[in-house]
Amino acid sequence: MSGGDARQRCSGCAVAGGAHPAAQRDERRFRPRLRARARFGVVFQAVTLVATLIGVVVLAVLLADIIADGSGRLSSDFLRHNPSYLASRAGLRPALFGTIWLMLITAVVAFPLGVGTAIWLEEYAGDTRFKRLIQMNIANLAGVPSIVYGILGLAVFVRAFALGRSVLAGALTLTLLILPVIIIAAQEAIKAVPGSIRLAAYALGATRWEAVRHHVFPLALPGILTGTILALSRAIGEAAPLLLIGALAFIDFVPGSLTDQFTAIPIQIYNWVSRPQQPFQELAAAAGIVLLILLLGMNAIAIVLRNRYSRKH
C-alpha cells in the first residue's frame, strides 16, 4: 500500500491532522531530550528525599536533646513522687495519673460519639442540606484553636454543669477538641469501604443496620482506630484548654473519682519549664520523655488492635 492510500483512508478519522504516515517515519519530528528528562526525575526524587530527611533530622535532634537533658532524672522515684519545691524530691505522679485518667475518659466518651456521628453522616443522612450544614461545621470545628475549646469547657462544663475543675470537666473539654478529628477520620474510613460490599449485603436481604454492623463497620474499623489514636495523641499533649479550666493548681494527689481535681503532664511540664532553676528544666525534659513513652504505647495499642481486626479476613 502506498503512503497516498494511507492518507486517503485516514482523512476522515478524528485525529487532528488526519494522516500520520507510518511509512514516512521521520525522527526529526521528535525531540525526546531523554537525558534531560531522566535528570529531572533524579533531581525531583532527591528533593523529596531531602524534604523527608529535614523532618526526620529535626525530630531526632529534638529527641536526643530531651533525652540528654532528662534521662538523668528518670527513675521510679520520679514517677512515684509528688511535685515539690525541692527539685531533688519532685515527681510526676499526680500528672502521670491525671493524664491517664484524662485519656481513658476522653477515649470512652469520644469514640462512640465520633464513630456514631460518622456512621450517621455516611450511611443514613443522605445528601440533604442538613447533612451538608453539619459537615461544614465539623470541618470548621476541626480547625478551631484548642484554647477556644478551653473557654467553652470553662463556661459549659466547669460552670454551667457545675463539674468544677474536675478531671471529668477536663476530659469532656478534650473530647470536644478531638471529636471533629475522630468524626472526619471515621468518615474517611467508612467512605473507603467499597459500595459493592453494601450492595451485596442489601441484595441478600440485609437491613441497613445489618450491612453496617457486619460489613461496613468491621472493614472501616482499622482506619477508625488509627484516626482515634491520632486524635488522642493530639489530646495527650494539650495544655492550653486544661490551663483554662483550671488544672494549674498545685496538686499533690492522684484523682480518685471523676469529680476530683487533677493536673496533667503537659501542665506539669509548663510549670517546671517556667522556673529558672536548671534542675527543674531537667525535670521538664524527663516528663517530656514520659509523655512520649505514653504516646508510643498508645500507638502500639492501635497497631495491635488494627492487626487483630485486619487478620480476620
Binding site: 459493592s196 450492595l199 451485596a200 441484595a203 441478600l204 460489613h215 472493614l219 479476613h313
Partner: peptide, 17 residues
C-alpha cells in the same frame, strides 16, 4: 431482596471466609 436474589457485574465477595 431475599426472595429475588441478585448477582452483580463484578464479583463482590465479602472480605471474609
Amino acid at each position: 431482596r431475599r426472595r429475588i436474589g441478585m448477582v452483580f457485574q463484578k464479583p463482590n465477595p465479602f472480605p471474609k471466609s
